[in-house]
Simulated assay, not measured.
Amino acid sequence: MEENSKTRELRVLGVAELRALGHPLRMRIFDILSQHGPQTSSTLAELTGESSGSTSYHLRILAKQDLIREIPERSAGRERWWERPKGSTSFGDTEDTRTPAGRAALQAATAEFHRLRTDELIDFFTRRVYREPEEWREAASSYSTTAKMTPAQLTELGARISTLVTEAGERYRDQEGDDVRVVSIRADLFPLSPLGGAS
Protein backbone atom coordinates (compact mmCIF):
# COMPACT_ATOMS: atom_id res chain seq x y z
CA MET A 1 0.00 0.00 0.00
CA GLU A 2 1.38 3.36 -0.90
CA GLU A 3 0.42 7.00 -0.78
CA ASN A 4 1.94 7.67 -4.17
CA SER A 5 4.00 10.66 -5.25
CA LYS A 6 6.85 11.22 -7.64
CA THR A 7 8.27 14.26 -5.89
CA ARG A 8 7.57 13.47 -2.23
CA GLU A 9 10.10 11.36 -0.39
CA LEU A 10 9.06 7.70 -0.14
CA ARG A 11 9.50 5.85 3.16
CA VAL A 12 9.20 2.07 3.12
CA LEU A 13 7.93 1.11 6.56
CA GLY A 14 9.76 -1.47 8.63
CA VAL A 15 8.31 -4.00 11.03
CA ALA A 16 8.30 -1.66 14.06
CA GLU A 17 6.39 1.03 12.14
CA LEU A 18 3.97 -1.55 10.76
CA ARG A 19 3.31 -2.87 14.26
CA ALA A 20 2.49 0.67 15.37
CA LEU A 21 0.02 1.12 12.51
CA GLY A 22 -1.56 -2.30 13.00
CA HIS A 23 -3.63 -0.90 15.88
CA PRO A 24 -7.05 0.44 14.75
CA LEU A 25 -6.91 3.70 16.72
CA ARG A 26 -3.32 4.46 15.71
CA MET A 27 -4.14 3.93 12.04
CA ARG A 28 -7.17 6.20 12.47
CA ILE A 29 -5.04 8.90 14.13
CA PHE A 30 -2.42 8.56 11.37
CA ASP A 31 -5.17 8.98 8.75
CA ILE A 32 -6.69 12.03 10.45
CA LEU A 33 -3.29 13.74 10.61
CA SER A 34 -2.68 12.83 6.95
CA GLN A 35 -6.06 14.00 5.73
CA HIS A 36 -6.88 16.96 7.97
CA GLY A 37 -3.57 18.27 9.24
CA PRO A 38 -2.23 18.97 12.74
CA GLN A 39 -4.23 17.95 15.79
CA THR A 40 -3.91 17.72 19.59
CA SER A 41 -4.79 14.73 21.75
CA SER A 42 -7.98 16.60 22.72
CA THR A 43 -9.12 17.29 19.15
CA LEU A 44 -8.31 13.70 18.21
CA ALA A 45 -10.33 12.49 21.19
CA GLU A 46 -13.34 14.44 19.89
CA LEU A 47 -12.89 13.07 16.37
CA THR A 48 -12.43 9.44 17.42
CA GLY A 49 -14.71 9.23 20.45
CA GLU A 50 -11.78 8.16 22.64
CA SER A 51 -10.41 9.82 25.79
CA SER A 52 -7.59 12.35 25.42
CA GLY A 53 -5.48 10.09 27.64
CA SER A 54 -5.91 7.26 25.13
CA THR A 55 -5.14 9.42 22.09
CA SER A 56 -2.12 10.91 23.88
CA TYR A 57 -0.78 7.41 24.56
CA HIS A 58 -1.18 6.34 20.93
CA LEU A 59 0.32 9.60 19.66
CA ARG A 60 3.48 8.84 21.65
CA ILE A 61 3.72 5.37 20.12
CA LEU A 62 3.40 6.79 16.60
CA ALA A 63 5.96 9.49 17.41
CA LYS A 64 8.42 6.89 18.75
CA GLN A 65 8.44 5.35 15.26
CA ASP A 66 8.80 8.77 13.59
CA LEU A 67 5.45 8.31 11.89
CA ILE A 68 4.30 11.64 13.33
CA ARG A 69 6.06 14.54 15.05
CA GLU A 70 5.29 17.26 17.52
CA ILE A 71 5.09 20.88 16.35
CA PRO A 72 7.03 22.65 19.16
CA GLU A 73 6.36 26.19 17.91
CA ARG A 74 2.61 25.54 18.04
CA SER A 75 2.55 23.64 21.33
CA ALA A 76 2.03 25.51 24.61
CA GLY A 77 1.79 24.13 28.14
CA ARG A 78 0.01 20.78 28.13
CA GLU A 79 -1.45 21.35 24.68
CA ARG A 80 0.83 19.60 22.22
CA TRP A 81 0.19 19.75 18.50
CA TRP A 82 1.11 16.82 16.26
CA GLU A 83 1.48 16.44 12.51
CA ARG A 84 2.34 13.80 9.98
CA PRO A 85 5.59 14.68 8.18
CA LYS A 86 5.28 15.26 4.45
CA GLY A 87 6.20 12.33 2.27
CA SER A 88 4.83 9.05 1.01
CA THR A 89 4.73 5.80 2.91
CA SER A 90 4.76 2.28 1.53
CA PHE A 91 3.90 -1.03 3.16
CA GLY A 92 6.63 -2.69 1.13
CA ASP A 93 7.67 -6.28 0.68
CA THR A 94 11.07 -6.15 2.40
CA GLU A 95 13.42 -8.73 3.86
CA ASP A 96 12.06 -7.91 7.34
CA THR A 97 8.45 -8.50 6.33
CA ARG A 98 9.28 -11.96 4.96
CA THR A 99 9.80 -13.35 8.46
CA PRO A 100 6.74 -14.76 10.30
CA ALA A 101 6.69 -11.79 12.73
CA GLY A 102 7.24 -9.32 9.90
CA ARG A 103 4.49 -10.87 7.81
CA ALA A 104 2.09 -10.66 10.76
CA ALA A 105 2.91 -6.96 11.27
CA LEU A 106 2.46 -6.26 7.55
CA GLN A 107 -0.86 -8.11 7.47
CA ALA A 108 -2.20 -6.25 10.53
CA ALA A 109 -1.25 -2.81 9.16
CA THR A 110 -2.59 -3.69 5.70
CA ALA A 111 -5.86 -4.93 7.18
CA GLU A 112 -6.36 -1.69 9.15
CA PHE A 113 -5.40 0.44 6.13
CA HIS A 114 -8.01 -1.24 3.91
CA ARG A 115 -10.65 -1.56 6.65
CA LEU A 116 -10.66 2.20 7.24
CA ARG A 117 -10.84 2.98 3.53
CA THR A 118 -13.61 0.45 2.95
CA ASP A 119 -15.57 1.84 5.91
CA GLU A 120 -15.22 5.38 4.50
CA LEU A 121 -16.39 4.22 1.07
CA ILE A 122 -19.42 2.36 2.42
CA ASP A 123 -20.32 5.20 4.80
CA PHE A 124 -20.29 7.77 2.02
CA PHE A 125 -22.22 5.83 -0.63
CA THR A 126 -24.80 4.32 1.73
CA ARG A 127 -25.41 7.15 4.22
CA ARG A 128 -23.60 10.45 3.77
CA VAL A 129 -24.20 10.84 0.05
CA TYR A 130 -27.86 11.71 0.71
CA ARG A 131 -26.87 14.57 3.00
CA GLU A 132 -24.34 16.09 0.60
CA PRO A 133 -25.05 19.14 -1.61
CA GLU A 134 -26.00 18.22 -5.16
CA GLU A 135 -22.66 19.29 -6.65
CA TRP A 136 -20.78 16.90 -4.34
CA ARG A 137 -23.25 14.06 -5.01
CA GLU A 138 -22.71 14.50 -8.74
CA ALA A 139 -18.93 14.81 -8.43
CA ALA A 140 -18.50 11.65 -6.33
CA SER A 141 -17.98 8.41 -8.24
CA SER A 142 -16.96 4.80 -7.83
CA TYR A 143 -15.82 2.67 -10.75
CA SER A 144 -15.31 -1.05 -11.02
CA THR A 145 -14.79 -3.53 -13.82
CA THR A 146 -13.02 -6.80 -14.47
CA ALA A 147 -10.72 -7.74 -17.33
CA LYS A 148 -8.38 -10.55 -18.30
CA MET A 149 -4.80 -9.21 -18.24
CA THR A 150 -1.19 -10.28 -17.97
CA PRO A 151 1.06 -9.08 -15.13
CA ALA A 152 2.82 -6.74 -17.57
CA GLN A 153 -0.48 -5.23 -18.69
CA LEU A 154 -1.66 -4.73 -15.11
CA THR A 155 1.66 -3.10 -14.24
CA GLU A 156 1.36 -0.74 -17.20
CA LEU A 157 -2.20 0.20 -16.26
CA GLY A 158 -1.13 0.77 -12.65
CA ALA A 159 1.65 3.10 -13.80
CA ARG A 160 -0.81 5.15 -15.87
CA ILE A 161 -3.28 5.44 -12.99
CA SER A 162 -0.45 6.23 -10.58
CA THR A 163 0.67 9.12 -12.78
CA LEU A 164 -2.84 10.55 -12.91
CA VAL A 165 -3.42 10.19 -9.16
CA THR A 166 0.01 11.60 -8.33
CA GLU A 167 -0.49 14.63 -10.56
CA ALA A 168 -3.83 15.38 -8.88
CA GLY A 169 -2.29 15.01 -5.43
CA GLU A 170 0.62 17.31 -6.21
CA ARG A 171 -1.57 19.89 -7.93
CA TYR A 172 -4.33 20.13 -5.33
CA ARG A 173 -2.83 18.89 -2.03
CA ASP A 174 -2.46 22.37 -0.49
CA GLN A 175 -5.34 24.10 -2.28
CA GLU A 176 -7.54 26.40 -0.19
CA GLY A 177 -10.96 27.86 -0.92
CA ASP A 178 -14.57 28.08 0.21
CA ASP A 179 -15.69 25.07 -1.84
CA VAL A 180 -12.52 22.99 -1.29
CA ARG A 181 -12.75 19.78 0.77
CA VAL A 182 -10.41 16.88 1.46
CA VAL A 183 -11.27 14.08 -0.97
CA SER A 184 -10.19 10.47 -1.32
CA ILE A 185 -8.59 9.36 -4.58
CA ARG A 186 -7.98 5.64 -4.75
CA ALA A 187 -7.46 2.76 -7.15
CA ASP A 188 -7.16 -0.97 -6.47
CA LEU A 189 -5.65 -3.36 -8.99
CA PHE A 190 -5.25 -7.04 -8.10
CA PRO A 191 -5.92 -10.52 -9.50
CA LEU A 192 -9.07 -12.31 -8.35
CA SER A 193 -8.96 -15.79 -6.86
CA PRO A 194 -9.66 -18.53 -9.40
CA LEU A 195 -13.07 -20.17 -9.05
CA GLY A 196 -12.66 -23.06 -6.68
CA GLY A 197 -9.21 -21.78 -5.64
CA ALA A 198 -7.98 -20.77 -2.23
CA SER A 199 -9.39 -17.49 -0.95
Rank of each mutant, 00 (worst) to 15 (best):
F113S: 01
E17V: 10
R69E: 14
T97Y: 01
V129Q: 13
D31T: 12
S162K: 15
S141I: 00
T126S: 15
K86H: 15
D31W: 13
E170D: 04
Y172W: 09
D96S: 09
H23N: 14
W136Y: 08
R127F: 05
G169F: 13
E176F: 09
A111E: 10
G14F: 01
T94C: 02
K86I: 04
R117P: 00
S41C: 11
S56K: 00
E46A: 14
T48E: 07
D188G: 10
G197P: 14
S56T: 00
R84C: 06
P85H: 05
R78C: 07
M1A: 13
T97E: 01
T118W: 02
T150W: 09
E9G: 02
R26K: 10
T97M: 02
S52F: 02
D123H: 12
G77M: 12
H23S: 11
S88N: 02
T99M: 02
S56V: 01
S51H: 03
E70F: 03
L164H: 09
L18G: 11
A109Y: 07
S88F: 02
W136L: 12
F30T: 13
I68T: 12
D31P: 01
G37D: 04
I32M: 14
V182K: 12
T155A: 10
G87R: 09
E79L: 09
L157I: 15
P24E: 10
I61Y: 01
